[in-house]
Design a protein around this nucleic acid. Structure first.
Length: 623
DNA sequence: CTAGGGTTAG
């Protein structure tokens, strides 16, 4: 109900209709206004001798709430509502058409309820995001002495997942065991899903391993869980195992593995998946298409992403936003803005995520004025109220451009709650522009939020180290120890012949380690004669220059690039993926290496892409 | 009447 209402307000009060194409507007209107000839499914003269079966079949012919309400009235006047099956169907249809108010009213009036009535009601609430009523109804069910069954439990577990209610979820898990439903695939796979999405991936896996009959859906849940928690390699292990066990993945399973490819950032694997999708002739629907746009974009090929986008027959706001976001993290802000215009012309209404992607694109391309304009336009013209994420993009946009005072003023003036991210964006800008005087206040506020993210402490320590404030560096380090946080180790991945190799800093575990270091040595010599001076500012420790040089020398991305150079033919682009951001020194290193080796180097770091070609980076050194 | 899928700042 809320959704319908807010959409209606949006359309009328902000004049959005002018962005609709005529047909889209007509479709939107015909959905909400009943068609007179359709609304009378059963004439009042007809209803006298009708039986329950007749009304059930009539209910399934209903196309809108008005028709349902009419049948509801007829069923009530004839007394057929007392037939439990009829009442349950009516309950189901109301919930399906999002008329939870009627459904709940009917449910409360029912003199007799069976397990179906309970689960339809509980399920109706979950599907419409009304978790309070969902849990409330579930409690009523238990208090009334009934047992929760294999139908009602998956619904409540799903509600736990959506609300991140791990405690409630664990309680319900024990209810599952008490009722002996731990062998039911529906119950179990929702439990696995719940644990995975709530960050308890090990619990999810344990439960999954104990399931005697793992079907396609259960396996897909587990694969998605691994991708979501940042372990896409594990997703692949399970996907391969699944096929070995004789399962043919369906469309949903494919979307899931495509998503894992996006997380992995491995181009060859992505192409393999794409070939498989073509060979098996899975249709390129909105979900699969959108996932593939994201996959190619996150593997570094914006062109392949766009190709998929252009080939899709149907696109919705998510597909457009995904493509806009793709241009954003490749630093192509102008293209993102062009696409936004096309999106409006085709009648698709932007949502909050579209604007996050747009503002992000502007900030990473230095399009300050466009960003500012969009930011002021979004709520006025499109009814999207800025939230913290929008503000964070704006702080980033202004901050990168060196307008730190404006950024700070924006933070101070905003009315939504500030989070860690917004202070980080600000501090990131302070780091770029070496504005130490504004740091202390922001640092204090960030630390007061008791952040558990080691990256935040590293950022601060980095800034202080750069300014030579070693006492403050030590303070931050102590705080990290006290809060038991360790620096996240940096890794770089490179894919050669369909195998993904991982490198850590100073890594010598690779079989060709000797060659790699020789290559690195010869590269460095060539670079130095071209004027390269290692930039030790990027090294965070308060140590001797000698030691610093050693650390810098073997940063994981340098090792991966050296390996790429010896393991792939001349001229092949080198694609690497990092879990952290590239440091300034490695960025310079990549630029020079792209020149002397005549190779394109495509780096995906924790935030965005860098395309190095003949000494120039696509980020314009603006990152 | 039940389970799985696509876009999101730093």
């Amino acid at each position: 109900m809320f959704k319908l209402k807010s959409q209606a307000t949006l359309l009328s009060s902000h004049g959005i209709l002018r962005f609709f194409s005529a047909s889209a507007a007509a479709a939107a209107i015909s959905d909400t206004i009943p068609q007179p000839q359709q609304s009378t499914l059963v004439s009042n003269a007809q209803i006298k001798d009708m039986n329950p079966e007749f009304f059930i079949s009539t209910l399934f012919k209903c196309r809108n709430i008005f028709q349902i309400k009419q049948v509801h009235a007829q069923v009530t006047t004839t007394g057929i509502i007392h037939d439990l099956v009829v009442a349950n169907k009516l309950l189901y249809i109301c919930a399906k058409h999002k008329d939870l108010v009627s459904a709940h009213l009917l449910f409360n009036k029912m003199e007799e309820r069976d397990p179906v009535s309970w689960s339809v009601m509980i399920g109706g609430f979950v599907r419409n995001g009304d978790y309070d009523h969902c849990f409330q109804t579930f409690r009523e069910l238990i208090r009334g002495g009934s047992k929760p069954d294999n139908f009602s439990l998956p619904f409540v577990i799903k509600a736990c997942r959506d609300t991140m209610g791990l405690i409630m979820g664990t309680l319900i898990h024990s209810t599952v065991l008490k009722n002996g439903l731990h062998l039911d695939n529906f119950v179990c796979s929702t439990l696995v899903d719940m644990y995975a999405k709530c960050g308890m991936i090990d619990n999810a896996k344990k439960l999954f391993d104990r399931m005697p009959k793992k079907d396609l859906v259960t396996r897909t849940v587990m694969i998605a869980g691994y991708a979501e928690c940042g372990k896409p390699n594990e997703s692949w292990v399970l996907f391969d195992q699944m096929r070995k066990d004789g399962f043919v993945p369906d469309k949903v399973a494919m979307v899931t593995i495509v998503n894992a490819c996006a997380k992995l950032g491995a181009m060859n694997k992505s192409r393999l998946v794409h070939d498989y999708i073509c060979a098996k002739r899975y249709s390129l629907d909105v979900e699969l298409g959108t996932a593939m746009i994201d996959m190619y974009a996150k593997c570094g090929s914006i062109d392949s992403a766009r190709e998929i986008f252009d080939r899709m027959e149907q696109r919705n706001v998510i597909s457009w936003s995904a493509m806009i976001g793709a241009y954003g993290y490749h630093g192509q802000g102008r293209e993102a803005l062009d696409l936004f215009r096309m999106m409006l012309n085709s009648g698709v209404i932007p949502n909050r995520i579209t604007f996050i992607s747009l503002l992000y694109a502007c900030s990473h391309a230095g399009l300050v004025d466009d960003g500012l304009q969009l930011f002021s336009l979004m709520s006025v013209s499109y009814g999207v109220r800025p939230d913290v994420k929008h503000y964070t993009c704006m702080v980033d946009l202004l901050g990168r451009a060196g307008r730190l005072d404006e950024a700070l003023r924006l933070i101070e003036s905003m009315k939504v709650e500030k989070d860690e991210g917004i202070w980080c964006a600000f501090l990131g800008a302070c780091r770029i522009h070496k504005q130490v005087d504004l740091v202390d206040k922001a640092a204090k506020l960030l630390l007061s939020l008791q952040t558990q993210n080691p990256g935040h402490y590293i950022l601060l320590s980095n800034i202080y180290a750069n300014a030579g404030r070693w006492k403050d560096v030590a303070k931050i380090r102590n705080l990290m120890t006290k809060r038991r946080l360790k620096k996240i180790p940096g890794y770089t991945w490179i894919e050669v012949d369909n195998i993904i190799y991982q490198f850590g800093a100073g890594d010598n575990s690779h079989l060709r380690s000797k060659e790699i270091y020789e290559m690195l040595k010869s590269l460095t010599q060539k670079l130095e004669s071209a004027g390269y001076v290692p930039d030790t500012n990027s090294v965070l420790h308060d140590v001797d220059e000698e030691v610093k040089l050693g650390i810098l020398y073997a940063h994981s991305e340098k090792l991966a690039i050296a390996f790429g150079l010896i393991a792939t033919p001349d001229g092949t682009p080198i694609r690497i993926t990092k879990n952290l951001r590239v440091c300034g020194d490695c960025h310079t290193f990549c630029k020079l290496v792209s020149t002397i080796t005549q190779r394109d180097i495509i780096v995906r770091d924790a935030n965005r892409f860098h395309h190095f070609k003949e000494g120039i980076c696509s980020c314009g050194d603006y990152w």
